[in-house]
């Protein structure tokens, strides 16, 4: 892990009217790091992530992603990032191959690049036989792995994962995290929000958001030490109890 910072946020704030969804958060993420972004529902983690992805404009503060300013260089950022949401975002009525080709295409990749990489990817995922099957017919776990592969297909600097492991079994989740490690080892920075606190242990560093603010940010080991906790679960509960915001 180098010291090159690929995400920086300084006093980043998003207001919706009177409501401060994200309240002056500051953090940095290094290249190749797996950065966990935790928080209860409504804590503001999705809003923060949307600002970094260029889906939502910050109200105030500063942030750069892949070296580009989120206010002014939105379009440059988009070329450097990948994104996977909790809905997996594959087209169910398209085949595995067609989905890959579409996402490669909208990132402007050449036909030869797409063709070559698709072959490799299908082999890695053991999906060669299913290449022409509709995504609809695949089991959830496969869809999820495919969605992740598609999100990093165009070889982005950073991939944002919004609760990527919702609703899948522990074995598949473990396999999914192996893919995340591989991506990280290739130098792709992984920015991941999650509900599962055991997954927080897999991250290099974790930030915990409460009521729009970052309450804690460190490696899982140090956080447990700091809060005298056995697990990330306990750390999280101690912090989350302070929350005044309800779900939403």
């Amino acid at each position: 892990m180098g010291n090159e910072k690929v995400i920086t946020a300084e006093q980043l704030t998003k207001r919706f009217g009177d409501f401060v969804a994200v309240d002056a958060i500051s953090f940095e993420v290094s290249k190749g790091e797996i950065f966990g972004f935790l928080g209860a529902n409504g804590a503001g983690k999705t809003t923060a992530m949307r600002m970094l992805c260029g889906l939502s404009l910050p109200t105030s503060g500063k942030a750069t992603v892949a070296g580009f300013d989120v206010f002014k260089q939105n379009e440059s950022i988009k070329k450097k990032i990948g994104y996977m949401s909790q809905k997996f975002s594959l087209y169910e009525d398209l085949t595995v191959k067609e989905n890959i080709r579409f996402y490669g295409g909208i990132y402007g990749k050449s036909d030869s690049f797409i063709k070559e990489k698709t072959e490799k990817l299908l082999q890695q995922l053991h999906l060669t036989n299913e290449a022409n099957a509709l995504v609809r017919s695949l089991p959830l776990g496969w869809k999820q792995k495919l969605a992740f592969s598609v999100a990093i297909f165009h070889e982005p600097d950073i991939v944002f994962l919004d609760e990527p492991t919702g609703g899948v079994d522990p074995v598949t989740r473990r396999e999914f995290w192996n893919m995340i490690y591989e991506a990280s080892a290739r130098g792709i920075t992984v920015f991941v929000t999650t509900h599962y606190l055991d997954e927080a242990e897999y991250c290099n560093r974790v930030s915990i958001m409460v009521d729009g603010k970052i309450e804690a940010l460190d490696t899982p080991a140090k956080l447990k030490e700091q809060y005298h906790a056995e697990s990330m679960d306990e750390v999280f509960l101690q912090l989350a109890r302070k929350a005044t915001r309800s779900d939403g």
Binding site: G54, L55, K78, K79, Y83, K87, S89, Y91, I106, G108
Partner: peptide, 13 residues
């Protein structure tokens, strides 16, 4: 509804 619109908005399209 499918969430694919978000993916496209995050893409350089």
């Amino acid at each position: 509804e499918m969430g694919t619109m978000e993916i496209m908005l995050v893409s350089p399209l």
